[in-house]
Design a protein around this nucleic acid. Structure first.
Lengths: 265, 265
DNA sequence: ACGGGCTGGTCGTTCAATGAATATCGTCTT
DNA sequence: AAGACGATATTCATTGAACGACCAGCCCGT
């Protein structure tokens, strides 16, 4: 007797679950991998994967493993808040990188995390945890604090009231202390972290506004602890952030608004 | 009595059809737009769109229109032949751009087209038809000719035997003439086009090899007709292409193979 | 007030989706 | 060589999830 599956699971949900099984570090998955990941029966997974493949959403490599397809990548270039922002920000990031020779990151808010949408990487600088497309926690990353501090109060409450995992001994996981930091970040438009996410990595971030004054992104520089005086990097990050904001149509007179946090969940 | 729909159309196909309705220039679609585009009934389209939204594949803007979601963009960063290739190629493209101050494009082969996966754009250079994520025809673009010439003979036959649309009076749509060009391109590793795709735009392209000697991409420079002597740009494009190839693990001794054309269809 | 275009929601019918079972292939192990 | 294993393919009777006609608001411009 078939129909063993839990009800409420739609075809679409299974299809999307298969798609989103691909993660950084697990970007080439075999049928068996996907079955393990999703818990779907072989036959079901295979059928759905063939449909995904036919549409070009995924591709099958010579070794039988599946990878994300180029058609899906093309689709993703249509995502707002990435391609246009990236294109505008690139020259500024190049300049900032040239000036400092340190990691430069651009991130936006999504679903309780800061998502890195562009980076300039120094080959021999600190090793970083995440790559383009990766996610950073809001409470202990430079870009995260900046983005969080310019969100809705409700959203801030939810984040600070939830899990605040500690990544290093320096991670600040105290809600009231964080709340003070957030308040300060909202007035200055910047935030700094010292070894809170990765031991030996410090970061300074600054906000980026669109033409309506909404904080839509954050720009940061990550340096090895002690290699560069972080304070000295702040003005350049602020200036570059303002430059990108200007390119987005923002002018110094425009009042700065909280970003529409697109609250996840 | 429902069930009017043509049989053979699966849920998955409808879901993917909705997703792939998003195109450059049509990147924010309302429910009604998507219904028109796909021919699905309102209710069906809405149900599927809600599932896509729940999974984060698409997002709903304040005005009710749907756009590609950030989660989907994150997924796409896992696509092979894009992110890794882009990251490696970027410095070389920067250098080439600095040297020439002209459009620089990086493209790979997919489904009968050359797909642009990265670009450096000169603000005041020729207006180009396509953007990052866009597609170029194989028979009348620089990158297209290079990629085509390093494909399987069967694939070349299929392309040259199919439709060869003419975009300008200079478009070469004669199969036998194109075959000679392709053969030449295969020996030199480069190709030039003069106003074949866009009037007033000339282009020169060079191949890029991976560690196994497979031609996996093509690099091109696009200039306004007459503004720069195209011949003069060729050496720099070749050198940059070789630089990227070296970064991919290729060494001059490695024999050059036809790329695995991932034949569409 | 009215029509047209849009989004949001309901519900009985039915066919596409399901997954246990089986086949097949390649690769180790004994 | 035989057997065990893990993987990818393929089949098919059963059934509940997907379907879409229909209806209800809502916001326009007229």
């Amino acid at each position: 007797m078939p129909r063993t599956s839990e009800p409420g699971r739609t075809v679409s949900s299974r299809l999307l679950e298969l798609l989103f099984s691909f993660r950084p570090g697990r970007s080439a998955l075999s049928l068996a991998d996907l079955v393990r990941e999703t818990g779907l029966p072989h036959a079901t997974a295979r059928r759905l994967l063939l449909e995904l493949q036919k549409a070009g959403a995924i591709e099958k490599r010579d070794d039988g493993r599946f990878t994300i397809g180029l058609r899906l990548w093309q689709l993703s270039t249509l995502a707002p808040r990435t391609e246009s922002l990236r294109a505008l920000a690139q020259p500024f990031m190049d300049d900032l990188y040239t000036a400092l020779r340190q990691h430069v990151q651009l991130a936006v808010l999504d679903d309780d995390h800061a998502v890195i949408i562009e980076r300039r990487s120094a080959p021999h600088a600190v090793e970083l945890v995440s790559q383009v497309g990766g996610r950073l926690p809001l409470h202990c990353s430079g870009v995260g604090k900046v983005l969080l501090s310019h969100s809705d109060p409700d959203y801030i409450d939810r984040i600070l009231g939830g899990q605040l995992p500690r990544f290093t001994p320096h991670t600040n996981s105290d809600p009231s202390s964080l709340r003070r930091e957030i308040a300060a970040s909202r007035t200055t438009g910047t935030a700094t972290v010292r070894g809170e996410l990765t031991v030996g990595a410090d970061s300074v971030a600054s906000r980026i506004m669109d033409g309506d004054g909404r904080v839509v992104a954050a720009l940061s520089v990550v340096v090895q602890s002690g290699s560069v005086e972080l304070q000295a990097a702040i003005p350049s990050v602020i200036a570059s952030g303002l430059g990108i904001s200007r390119a987005l149509g923002w002018t110094p007179g425009t009042p700065i608004r909280r970003g529409s946090s697109l609250a996840g969940h």
